[in-house]
Design a protein around this nucleic acid. Structure first.
Lengths: 105, 105
DNA sequence: TTATTATTTCTATAATTCTAGAAATGTATG
DNA sequence: CATACATTTCTAGAATTATAGAAATAATAA
C-alpha cells in the first residue's frame, strides 16, 4: 500500500478521492446517479487537466486497485472510483501500533 | 514517507528497527553502550546477510533519513539508527483522519 | 446498425530508482 | 604515525516503473 501511495500521481488521485464528493455528472436522463465517487474520466480530468491521457490514469488506478486502496467498479459505461476505508484503517492501525511499540529492552 | 516505505529493502529496515532492541555490541572496553538502536553495520548484517554491501544500506538509510522516518546519529565510529516515533504518529494520524473523513455530500 | 463515448490493454520509449564495486572520509587502535 | 574499521560518496550499469500514443473492448446513443 505504501508503494502504491509513494507515486506522486497516485497520491494526488487518492487525495482527490478523499476530498471529492462529486456525483457523477451525466447526460439528460441522468443515467448514473447516486454513485459514491467520481468516474475514471473525472479523475483524469482533475489530475491531468485534460481527457487526453486516460491510459496513464487507468494504469495508476489499476495499481491503487491492486494495492487494495481504491475500488473501481463499473456503472454503465463509466468506472466509479471509491477509496477503500478499510485499507486506510489498516494503515492507521499499523502505524499506531508501530508508534506505541516499546522495544523489548 | 510512503515513498520511502514503498521500497521493500527499506520496509525491511524499518521493520527491523521496530522489532530490534539490540544494544550496540562493542569491543573489549564497551565503547558504545546504552544506545537505543542498532548500528548501520548491524542493520546491513541483518538485512543483506553480510557486511559486504554496506553502500546499498547506507543509501537506503539516507532515504529513510530524508523522509524523516529514521534518525542516524554518530556515536564514536558507529552510526546508530532509531525509528522516529513522531513520524509514525504523523502517518497514523493522517490515515486515521482519512479513514473517518466523511464526504461533503 | 453505425457511431460515439468511456475505459483498458498493448507497445515502445523515457525516466527514475536500485545495486554494488571502488575510492574517499573519519574515527579509533597498535 | 600507520593501520584497521565503520560508514559515506561517487560511478556505471541493471532493473523497475511511468508515460503517452494507438488499437481494442464494451456500453450507450443516434
Amino acid at each position: 500500500m505504501c508503494k502504491a501511495l509513494g507515486d506522486p500521481t497516485r497520491a494526488r488521485i487518492v487525495q482527490f478521492l478523499l476530498d471529492c464528493c462529486c456525483e457523477v455528472e451525466v447526460g439528460e436522463q441522468g443515467e448514473v446517479r447516486s454513485t459514491e465517487g467520481p468516474t475514471a474520466g473525472q479523475v483524469c480530468c482533475h489530475i491531468t487537466g485534460s481527457e487526453t491521457v486516460t491510459s496513464t490514469i487507468s494504469f495508476h488506478l489499476k495499481e491503487l486497485r491492486n494495492a487494495g486502496l481504491v475500488s473501481v467498479e463499473k456503472r454503465g459505461k463509466y468506472m466509479v472510483c471509491t477509496i477503500n476505508r478499510a485499507a486506510l484503517a489498516k494503515l492507521a492501525d499499523f502505524f499506531n501500533d508501530a508508534r506505541t511499540r516499546s522495544g523489548c529492552c
